[in-house]
Structure formats: structure tokens, C-alpha cells
Design a protein around this nucleic acid. Structure first.
Length: 452
RNA sequence: GGCCGAGUAGCAAAGUGGUAAUGCAUCGGAUUGCAAAUCCGAUAUACGGCGGUUCGAUUCCGCCCUCGGCCUCCA
């Protein structure tokens, strides 16, 4: 079975055939670092992290994953002004928090995390090239990309020129030659961060960064470009225009992948609506691993309705996996692989199916306790970034509630009571612990406990 | 207005041209001193609506309805 992915460019599922199997390249749009990441920001991270894991298995040692960090942006400038902090301070702290949060939800670090501030010369060079080739023009300190100069504009998002004009709500700046033209470079005031350029001191527009950073790392053409569906237009459409025109018409990206939104109460979760949950906050409610599983339970292109109950259920799913592993601690895993899970992932990253198969492995591990099932369950977890931890730690490590020593002491007291057939006392101890969030399980090898 | 996506049992969520996985929930039973965990079994008129193609559609086509999104910063 071969990997198939849904390509936004063709609107259909296609077999994935890398440009160069010895050099598979994936670029995903990363965060603008001015605030904590919310669960909607986390979705593409987890989705493409899973794809990264699949690609690494298919092309061992040949996959390069890049995810940028946008550290030049007007929202950052605004945040700095409002909080009286420096831009560096904000971007560095936010980047650190981002790494923590994404690590907590099991995301591997990309091979490269390019930053805008370290790619300005490349952006300037690309803009200059576009000006020289007639695809862009300077006007009033700005440099604009001239959309009519790129015949293929609109192909990714499926928008025609007429649609653009009909639906245009954008205020047309007087220096634009065409209403659809967009900014490559804009002037900075003395207070704003800026860099010297042939068009004066200024800063890059939003879209050019990804074109420049991907070119720097990957060259003019690469395999996969990912991001959220809200980036299809205008961001990715504009990236294509810039990159293709800067590279004499050479193809930019072979496969465009986009994840669906996280919604809450029927509405898209977004910063502008203010209806978002930060990953940081959710980590206080559930383990990061449960947040990850929640994001993977729905196919990546479908909308995902976030609820507290869904988060609880995801936690419950993990409990089931870890229970199976805990109860099978004496089973030595074979060399079996999670073939069904892998096949599901190869089919356009069908994580929902993959998790269902993972449940099947857990069932087999519970019942016939087969070494194959244990190996497969663990392998499934490795592919999905789940259930890799120590089962006892999963159930027992929690800051709240009685200490492990107190619990052990209570268990011993209860054991004594049971030996004396004093079941009333034994049950009292058990109920007491339960009230404190500790559940006891009497098994053939003695009593174990977990935090509920 | 243009474009895009979604609508499957109580909940979540896959999937298929021949009446539909999986998990949770619910109900029995096994096991247990009683539980928990696990196992066995059961339940549910579940595929938004109306047409069409077909021997047969939830699955293909058309129209419609509902919800959401993009067209302006946004994962």
C-alpha cells in the first residue's frame, strides 16, 4: 500500500510520489509568536507531526520537515507597544511557550524552524527579482506584487478574477495597479522595526516569508506544503504567485495539504472571535497526550467540534490503552508492526480509523494477551505519538491527591482488614480513597491503584 | 453574490454500489467477599430532504434544506 494524500491543488486524493525519494521535503506554516497557541493552532501541528512520522517510516533518513516561526508581524509590533515590552522579549518568550506546549502534545521538533528575522536578505533578494522580472513594482515606499502578471493566480483557491472583483471588500490602496495586488514590502516608521532595502527602510509583507524561507531550505520546488484551510486564500495563493514568478515558472509545491478548523459551539475558534482555548489552559484540564488524541480522533480535513466532554473521552481512550499495557506488563512484545494502523494512515492520514484499529489491538491484548498485539499497540502509538509512556506513571503521577506512600499504607491497612474478613473496614478504606480520587483494583498479583 | 467544507445510532466518529467499523454510554451474564479492571452477550426503525441513474444507493448525479468557513489578520 502506498501513501495517498488529498491535494488541495487538484481537489482529489493522489498517490504520493516524492520529487526525490532521497530528499523528501515538507514545509508547514508555523506560528506568529505574539501569544499562546490555542487548540486551533495545535491542530495542524499534530496533524503534520503525524504525517512527518509516517513519512519518516516510508523514507527513513530522507525526510526534512520545516516549520517557520513568524517573528516579524504587525500584531507583534502592536503587542509590544501595548505591553511596553521589546519585540525580542515577546517573540522569544512566546517561542519558548510554543515549544513547551507543542512538546506536551507530543509533537516532534521539525528539522528546521526558520525565522523571518534571519531571512530578511533572502526576502529582499526575492522581491528584487520579482521587480526585475516585471511581476512586482515599487510605489510610495511599498513593493506590490502585480497579480495580473501571473496568469495562474487563483488556481489553488479556485477563485477567478471575476470572483475577486465581485467579492472584493478590500479597500483598494491608491498605489495599487490592480485591486488584487498585495504587499511584498512596506515602509516602516522610525519606531517600527525595519531593515534597509532598495526601496528604503521597511519590513516584509506577510506572504513573502514562506516563499523565501522554503526556497532557502528546500530550493524552488518541494513536496508538501501544509497549513490550515484559512491559509489557502490569500496566503498560499500568494506564496505560489511569488515563488513561481521568482523561479521562472518552475513548480513550487507538488502537494498542498490543509487541515479543517476547530470549532466551538458551532463557530470557528479564532483569536479574532476570542472563543479559543489555549493549549496552556487545556493542559491544566487534561494531559497533553489527551489533547493530541482529541485532535487525531477526527479526520484532519473535517471540522472538529471542541468540547470538554470530547477531551474527557480522549482521556478515557488513553486510559483504555494504558490499562491494556499495564495489565500486560508481563507480556513480552513480539516484533509485530501495527500494519492496520499504518495502512489507515497511508490513506490520506485516516487517524480516526487508525485509532479504531488501535482499540482493536488493545482488545486483543486484553483477551488473548498476545505478544503480537502488545507490539502492534506500541507501534501504533509510536506512529500516532500516543501511549509511549510508562502505564504506571500515566495512572499514578499526578500532583493532586494523597501521596503514593499514604496510598500504599492505606492499601496495606485494607489488606489486613480483608485478611481478618473485616470487609466493612476494607470497603471504608477503599471508599475513602475513592473520595480522594484514588481507585483500587484487586488483581491476582495484589492490589494496584490509579488516580481517577 | 462567488468559492469551499460538513450533516451517519444517546454522544464521538470511520466507511462502503449489495442494508454500516470502532470507542464511550446503556442493559444482561462471567469474574470478584463486594468493587475496580477484564471477558462474553444484548440493545438501538443511525446514513438531512426530494428526485434521477441502477437489478440494487447511505455510497454516483441533480436540486433543496441546515450549519460552518474563506473572499480582510487568522491554523
Amino acid at each position: 500500500m502506498k501513501l495517498h494524500v488529498h491535494n488541495t491543488l487538484t481537489k482529489r486524493k493522489e498517490e504520493f510520489a516524492p520529487l526525490d525519494p532521497a530528499n523528501v521535503r515538507m514545509y508547514v506554516c508555523g506560528p506568529t509568536v505574539y501569544d499562546f497557541a490555542h487548540i486551533g493552532n495545535a491542530r495542524p501541528v499534530v496533524v503534520f507531526d503525524t504525517l512527518y512520522r509516517v513519512l519518516k517510516r516510508l523514507y527513513p533518513g530522507a525526510v526534512t520537515y520545516a516549520r517557520n516561526i513568524t517573528d516579524i508581524d504587525d500584531k507583534i509590533i502592536a503587542r509590544a507597544l501595548a505591553s511596553k515590552r521589546t519585540i525580542d522579549d515577546i517573540t522569544q518568550e512566546t517561542t519558548r511557550a510554543y515549544h513547551e506546549d507543542m512538546g506536551a502534545i507530543g509533537a516532534l521538533r521539525p528539522d528546521h524552524e526558520p525565522r523571518c528575522t534571519q531571512t530578511v536578505p533572502e526576502m529582499v533578494a526575492m522581491i528584487a527579482k520579482l521587480v526585475a522580472s516585471g511581476h512586482a513594482y515599487a510605489a510610495e515606499g511599498h513593493v506590490m506584487f502585480n497579480v495580473p502578471a501571473f496568469a495562474d493566480y487563483g488556481r489553488l483557491s479556485g477563485r477567478s478574477r471575476d470572483d475577486q472583483i465581485a467579492g472584493a471588500r478590500v479597500e483598494v490602496a491608491p498605489y495599487k495597479k490592480d485591486a488584487a495586488d498585495f504587499v511584498l514590502w512596506k515602509p516602516s516608521t522610525p519606531e517600527q522595526p525595519g531593515w534597509e532595502s532598495p526601496w528604503g527602510r521597511g519590513r516584509p509583507g506577510w506572504h513573502i516569508e514562506c516563499s523565501a524561507m522554503s526556497e532557502k531550505l528546500f530550493g524552488p520546488t518541494f513536496d508538501i506544503h501544509g497549513g490550515g484551510q484559512d491559509l489557502i486564500f490569500p496566503h498560499h495563493e500568494n506564496e505560489i504567485a511569488q515563488s513561481v514568478c521568482a523561479h521562472d515558472g518552475v513548480q513550487f509545491v507538488k502537494y498542498w495539504l490543509h487541515n479543517g478548523f476547530v470549532i466551538v459551539n458551532g463557530e470557528k475558534m479564532s483569536k479574532s472571535l476570542g472563543n479559543f482555548y489555549t493549549v496552556r489552559d487545556l493542559r491544566g484540564k487534561a494531559p497533553g497526550e489527551a489533547i493530541r488524541l482529541l485532535l487525531l480522533k477526527t479526520h484532519y480535513r473535517a471540522p472538529l467540534d471542541f468540547t470538554d466532554d470530547g477531551l474527557k473521552q480522549a482521556k478515557g481512550d488513553l486510559d483504555r490503552f494504558y490499562t491494556a499495557l499495564k495489565n500486560a506488563s508481563d507480556v513480552t512484545p513480539s516484533a509485530a508492526k501495527a500494519d492496520k494502523v499504518f495502512d489507515a494512515l497511508l490513506d490520506d492520514l485516516n487517524t480516526a480509523k487508525a485509532i479504531a484499529e488501535m482499540h482493536e489491538y488493545a482488545s486483543v491484548l486484553n483477551a488473548p494477551r498476545s505478544p503480537d498485539a502488545k507490539a502492534a499497540l506500541l507501534d501504533a502509538g509510536a506512529l500516532l505519538g500516543l501511549a509511549q509512556g510508562d502505564p504506571l506513571a500515566w495512572f499514578q503521577s499526578d500532583a493532586e491527591g494523597p501521596s503514593a506512600a499514604d496510598i500504599e499504607a492505606a492499601i496495606q491497612a485494607r489488606l489486613d482488614a480483608r485478611k481478618a474478613k473485616n470487609f466493612a473496614e476494607a470497603d471504608r478504606i477503599r471508599d475513602d480513597l475513592k473520595a480522594k480520587g484514588v481507585i483500587l483494583e484487586d488483581g491476582p498479583k495484589g492490589t494496584t491503584w490509579k488516580r481517577g
